[in-house]
Design a protein around this nucleic acid. Structure first.
Lengths: 330, 330
DNA sequence: GTGAAAGCGCTAACAT
DNA sequence: ATGTTAGCGCTTTCAC
């Protein structure tokens, strides 16, 4: 592995000149050419450790996710990475397996790596999470932090749930079952509120037996749906408020021979490939993962550049209804 | 940011003692306690740049993927990360967007990071890819490299396709359509061979019109399926040989009102959530992503430890048939 | 525009 | 078991 000294020697200049040239400072054309030649001949690549040690910057950002086998998160990160990469930043992706202790460890790890910024979907309490992150630019995704302590990018969950519910209501449904996530996170709370508001706006009473709440997991969507369709007077429509719940719900319905769009009305969340693969196709509320990632990356870059306008912004991304054939007019 | 000198001063020992203690060398109990106290009091974290500069090791491995929004890859990496993490290694995940140029850049980037090993699903030619990687332990996933130049972990694609095809044949099907990936990669070639071999073993002639080949993408699965069912004498069964092709095929069938398991027989590949969500449930050949990731991570660790037994191994992982109801007896 | 030299924080060889 | 010290490869003053 050649170092900058060898390049300098071969080019007939000092190490300082090589360093400056490689970092965009102007040098004599003759020297520039000589350095280029030497770099190529020696196949020189600057050592990031030495550079980082000296500058205390890493040109990298950390990413913390609860899981990696989840298309919602990975699609967002795909979009984040594309933008950061274009600006010369690399990403450290860390998975904490929804374990707050591991999350803390990963955070320590990233601090040691001297990340220039952090994008996270924290699994621990957001106000705990942002503690000890004072100096560094942070963007939270799909979460809302306490007292505007950092930027947050998330879907307009209230409106998404409101519109989906209203869609069912406008098709004549009054007995609507809803599958919600755990109230320990903020997103499910917003979606619950959107559902409730739509029902209330249309003067519909909410049957407590129709409101199910559980983990954002396929199995819980499955079992909550089984409970709903097992009721003596089951709902005429079901609204599943997240990808996993949607998959679980559809699996339960299929298994029970209840076809969405024929025997029951259904609106899902995300899951667009599943939605199109079904017959009849499902109607689903889609989050714009690409826009979420883009907004997060751009806001982080703003913060890294020191633009105070970027700090502690709440950015809401609109969702879109993908029309299928899974709603029967009641 | 405190450094090791401050810790040493506060603990009343030398920097060497602190360094040794933090790296697992035995020191006097009294000193150990003093160092622990100092570390905690100063909230000291060793600087990875300095450490890396000195040791020329990073305790990290690089991961190169074609895409991040693909559950097959991300599930594997999830399994890889779990094992590496348990051994103290962190992972650098790089996405090359199926672009060989970008892949090369990411490789340079990882070299500068002094990764101790590399796990990759290369999108460029594998023999090109492994060039210039001589010194460093490499494991390829879902690819087979040229002259045993590095380790490879992949499913037993021949057997997977052979068994899936035979399953259809044993249910009386003779007119079998197959959706294959591009012959530029090795995996599709193996799956094609498995299909052909099963047909041949059972003395069935392969109708050229029934053998479709395209990109591993939803759209190509969709269009190839439309072509198949549009034939004057369409196949009685379709075998889709990858996740995206399966999704595209099912979407095309649904859209055309052709129900797998009723109007046509069908075997897919991967897509287990989709398979269970469908009614009738799909029969699919499942790759064991967890085992693939585990094998890759363990082999890489073997290589990093210098065990020559680990070098240039070909590890085949068996697939499993997930029985659904999408095969009609002919 | 260029060069000499200090020093970032750590580890490891060597001495004690 | 512990301390002294050189030096990893780079950037960055400062003097020219």
């Amino acid at each position: 592995m050649p170092n900058i000294a060898e390049v300098a020697k071969l080019a007939g200049v000092s190490t300082a000149t090589v360093s400056k040239y490689l970092n965009g400072v102007k040098v004599k054309a003759k020297n520039a050419a000589a350095i280029d030649r030497a770099v190529k001949e020696l196949n020189f690549h600057p050592n990031d450790f030495a550079r980082g040690l000296r500058t205390n910057r890493s040109m990298s950002v950390g990413v913390i996710l609860p899981e990696l086998d989840n298309l919602f998160f990975t699609s967002i990160i795909s979009s984040v990475d594309e933008i950061l990469d274009a600006h010369g930043y690399s990403t450290f992706v860390c998975i904490c397996r929804s374990d707050p202790d591991r999350e803390k460890k990963k955070l320590d790890f990233l601090k040691r790596k001297k990340i220039d910024g952090l994008i996270a979907v924290p699994c621990s309490d957001t106000s705990d999470f942002v503690k000890g992150l004072e100096g560094i630019p942070v963007v939270l995704i799909d979460r809302l932090s306490g007292a505007g302590s950092c930027s947050c990018v998330l879907s307009d969950n209230f409106t998404a749930a409101y519109n989906a519910t209203e869609k069912l209501i406008s098709n004549g449904h009054k007995r609507i079952g809803v599958l919600l996530g755990p109230d320990s996170n903020y997103t499910p709370i917003e979606r619950r509120a959107g559902f409730m508001a739509a029902m209330s706006t249309h003067s519909l009473t909410v049957d407590e037996n129709f409101v199910k709440s559980g983990a954002y997991r396929v199995e819980s969507g499955y079992s909550m749906t089984k409970e709903l369709i097992g009721l003596r007077e089951p709902p005429t429509a079901i609204f599943a408020t997240n990808n996993e719940l949607t998959i679980g719900a559809v699996t339960a319905l299929s298994e029970s021979g209840v076809t969405p769009g024929k025997d029951i009305s259904f609106i899902g969340f995300d899951s667009d490939t599943l939605a199109k693969a079904m017959n009849p196709a499902l109607t689903v509320m889609i989050q714009d993962v690409e826009a979420i990632g883009r907004a997060a990356a751009n806001n982080l870059l703003d913060q890294i550049r020191g633009e105070k306008a970027g700090r502690s912004q709440i950015i809401r991304i609109q969702t879109e209804l993908l029309d299928g054939k899974s709603i029967v007019v009641q």
